[in-house]
């Protein structure tokens, strides 16, 4: 792990919406092929961190480097940088007026200027792999939430990004559809993709992550392997956070009346 090259470097990142800091002095490196899962309570700045990396938010100080190049400058050509960074959002972000295929091909044809036939063939290959080839001419509204999110992942993947950002992609899904999306992400992780994942699915986090980053109040409080983090968290805040996901002790404690 250690000898691998750094793909993404975040240095002393500071982000403020104008009413108090959202991210305080966040520093984090992501190596090639690594899967970093960011967890933490709601409003801790997880999503904001991903959005900063993709230039959707202005930062106040600090910098972010991709492949050793600073991308947080005014002259940054975001259109080029974003081709190297794939992102999938929480809400279904497919373009409703385009078919599945057109959604996927918009980037390759309009941004990368790739040949439509060739890109389409690739899109079909990926769709087949995730079992959605029969939906290639469907419109987003004809898909289930889980299918939409899988297409959104394909749409990001076809740009051949160096790193993929997942911003709570299963949070808006019905429970029975969560699995199919997580499976695609697991598959990606196995195939060696570099990924940063924000999620509330703790079991999934444990299974997919090389490294867990615990963010609370805009600060990174812990960085550890999933094994260590989930069994022996170091900080009290991480312990308390993990406790909110477990129920097995509640009864014995004699449940306080509300």
């Amino acid at each position: 792990m250690k000898e691998k090259e750094k793909l993404l470097e975040i240095k002393h990142l500071h982000k403020d919406y104008g009413n108090g800091p959202v991210l305080k002095d966040v520093s984090l490196n992501v190596h090639k092929g690594e899967v970093v899962v960011i967890i933490g309570p709601s409003g801790c700045g997880k999503s904001t961190l991903l959005r900063c990396i993709n230039g959707l938010e202005q930062i106040q100080s600090g910098k972010i480097l991709l492949d050793g190049e600073v991308i947080t400058e005014n002259k940054t050509k975001w259109s080029e940088v974003r081709q190297k960074i794939g992102m999938v959002f929480q809400s279904y972000d497919l373009f409703p007026h385009m078919t599945v295929t057109d959604n996927i091909l918009l980037g390759p044809t309009k941004v990368q200027g790739r040949d439509k036939k060739e890109a389409e063939a690739e899109a079909e290959r990926i769709l087949e792999r995730i079992g959605l080839l029969d939906k290639k001419n469907a419109f987003p509204r004809q898909l289930s939430g889980g299918q939409k999110q899988r297409v959104a992942i394909v749409r990001a993947l076809i740009m051949k990004p160096e790193i993929m950002l997942f911003d709570e992609v299963t949070a808006a899904l019905d429970p029975e559809m969560v699995r199919e999306v997580l499976d695609v992400m697991l598959e990606l992780a196995k195939s060696g993709s570099t990924m940063m994942i924000v999620t509330h699915e703790m079991q999934f986090a444990r299974a997919v992550a090389d490294r867990i980053v615990f963010l609370d109040g805009g600060e990174i409080l812990e960085t550890d392997t999933p094994e260590k983090f989930f069994t022996r968290p170091k900080t009290d805040r991480a312990k308390r956070f993990l406790n909110t996901f477990s129920f097995h002790m509640e009864r014995e404690r004699g449940g306080k009346a509300i």
Binding site: N54, W78, S79, E80, R82, F89, D93, F95, L106, V111
Partner: peptide
């Protein structure tokens, strides 16, 4: 989020508007 996801696949602002 439509605008943001279009930006995130690398479309320029004009293209986001147009497509």
């Amino acid at each position: 989020v439509q605008e943001e996801s279009a930006l995130s696949i690398g479309l320029k602002h004009g293209q986001v508007m147009r497509y």
